[in-house]
């Protein structure tokens, strides 16, 4: 299991908080990522380290269909987003770009900011302190996309076969 530092967020974290509208038309994700979570945390983009995980409450990623939201997180090296539940489009987008979006009902109440957790994605296990939580498994179809590294890689593979 790999160790990850926790960034803890509340319920209903919406896409405008993940990446505000005014930055969406910047030419690249590279330029956009500096503004990740700007309304919520000063300099998140500078502080987050590759391999960190986000743990949040219910309805993470509600709001718009902007794929920029999961993409800035992936670009910053966020290893996975673990939430009680996800908004539909965010969930789909995350899988499509190869960012693990993991549903785990109990995690939110059991962690605090800066905790270190261990995550085993292949088994769907999240270890917090001495406790090991089991995460909800993805439908097989979505797992296949995620395993391919995202929908585009999945498509490119299909094209070869």
């Amino acid at each position: 299991m790999e160790k990850s530092k926790v960034w803890k967020f509340n319920h209903n974290v919406d896409t405008d908080q993940i990446i505000p509208s005014q930055y969406l038309l910047l030419p690249t994700i590279e330029e956009m990522k500096a503004y990740t979570f700007e309304p919520l945390i000063k300099d998140f983009a500078k502080q987050v380290q590759p391999g960190d995980v986000i743990i949040a409450g219910e309805n993470f990623g509600c709001g718009s269909s902007r794929e920029q939201a999961p993409r800035v997180l992936k670009e910053l090296g966020v290893r996975a987003v673990i939430a009680g539940s996800f908004a539909r489009i965010f969930f789909r987008n995350a899988i499509n770009i190869g960012l693990p979006a993991i549903i785990c009902k109990e995690a939110y109440d059991k962690v605090k900011q800066d905790d270190v957790v261990e995550l085993d994605m292949s088994e769907g296990l999240l270890k917090i302190g001495d406790e090991t939580l089991t995460c909800t498994r993805l439908p097989e179809y979505m797992q296949t996309i995620l395993n391919a590294g995202g929908l585009i890689e999945f498509l490119n593979k299909e094209e070869v076969e």
């Binding site: 709001g63 794929e67 489009i89 987008n93 499509n96 770009i97 585009i152």
Partner: peptide, 24 residues
């Protein structure tokens, strides 16, 4: 765009997707 669900007013199934889904 998330508000693609608007088209249900005419009895169509409209839904919002990200740009990777769109591209696919």
């Amino acid at each position: 765009d998330s508000h693609t669900c608007t088209y249900g007013a005419l009895g169509a199934f409209g839904t919002g997707v990200g740009n990777t889904d769109f591209l696919y």
